[in-house]
Computed example of a mutant assay.
Amino acid sequence: MNKPAGLAVHRSRLVGADDDYLMDRLRLQVEGRLHAVHRLDRATSGVLLVARSTEMAAELGRQLMARTVEKTYLAVVRGWPAEQGSIDYPLSGSSLRGEAKSALTHWRRLATVEVPIAQGRYPQQRYALLEVSPETGRYRQIRRHFHHVSHHLLGDTSHGRGDHNRLIRQHYGVHRLLLHARRLAVVHPATGQSLKLQAPLDDAWLRLLQAFAWMEMLDADAGEPTVMA
């Protein structure tokens, strides 16, 4: 399914007890047990795998552990990173404490823009649209990795830059983290066939892509047909 930004997947100690949750919404619509196979940050939108049985959830979980699931995100970052690259930087767990574990993120730059808005000592601001493929699944991995290399994600209120977040709110009406789980490819546990899922972008994303003249670039990068989540 396509998880909206700002909605937590399930109840946890990190969010309020009275908040709205994705799994609670689904259980009101679908009979039987449901299992979230993986997680997306509350602020992140996009493809989320939900299984209807413990057996299916376990098999999909094994694929995730084996790193055979292809995960592709879209992100908008501050600055112009190289055309492609990798960030190999260990990260700690959800408490941001404890032992750091290996974490690897790859990216490919899809488009760039320079907007004529003065801020600080710069008369223009540079942003880039990236396709991001994390090999591991550490807590807030993409957000923390791009913070580490000073290409902060726009709209990230925890690891980003407040001045650039204000810029996209004031000039483009974007009030969300610009990170979207665009595509997911897994092997269907029952049929053994490759299953490719894609989640459409919300209005805030489309508004920014239009403003930055990136719509054509995104359409050209759509690739082979996929099942819409």
Rank of each mutant, 00 (worst) to 15 (best):
P225Q: 00
T68G: 03
D203W: 13
T72Q: 11
A185E: 15
T226Y: 11
S92V: 05
A103E: 03
A220D: 14
R52G: 15
P116T: 06
G155E: 09
L74T: 13
G173A: 06
S45K: 06
R182P: 03
Y73R: 07
M1P: 06
E70W: 08
R97D: 14
L40S: 03
Y73V: 10
N2E: 10
L7F: 03
Q125I: 05
E55L: 15
W80C: 10
Y172C: 02
E31R: 15
E99Q: 15
D18S: 08
V227Y: 13
D221K: 00
L218R: 07
L74C: 12
E114F: 05
R121P: 04
G93R: 08
R166P: 00
A58H: 12
L154I: 05
Q210G: 10
H180I: 08
L40K: 01
G16H: 12
L179M: 02
A36V: 09
Q193M: 11
A220W: 11
A229M: 12
L184Q: 06
A213H: 14
H35G: 04
I87R: 00
A5V: 09
L177I: 10
L178P: 00
V187D: 06
K196A: 15
A103H: 05
L153C: 09
M228H: 10
G16D: 14
H188Y: 11
G223T: 08
R143F: 04
L218A: 12
L110E: 01
D41R: 01
M56L: 10
L28W: 05
R161W: 04
L64F: 14
A220P: 13
H171I: 09
R33Q: 13
R144N: 03
L74P: 12
V50F: 08
D18H: 07
H159L: 00
S95M: 13
V30S: 02
A66K: 13
R11S: 03
L130K: 01
S12E: 04
V30Q: 14
W214Y: 07
S94T: 11
K71M: 13
W107E: 06
R182W: 15
A118N: 07
S133E: 15
M65W: 00
Y139R: 05
L64M: 12
G160C: 10
T136Y: 04
E114V: 05
L218V: 10
Q170N: 13
H145Y: 06
F212D: 06
N165P: 09
L110M: 07
A118K: 11
D219R: 07
R109K: 12
W205G: 06
Y21R: 09
I87L: 04
L22D: 04
P81E: 02
Q170L: 13
I168C: 00
A100N: 06
P123R: 10
V174M: 02
H152I: 07
S53A: 07
L184T: 14
R109L: 09
R108T: 09
A213T: 10
R27W: 12
Q119G: 13
R144F: 08
A222S: 15
L22G: 11
M23A: 04
R33K: 12
H171W: 08
G162T: 11
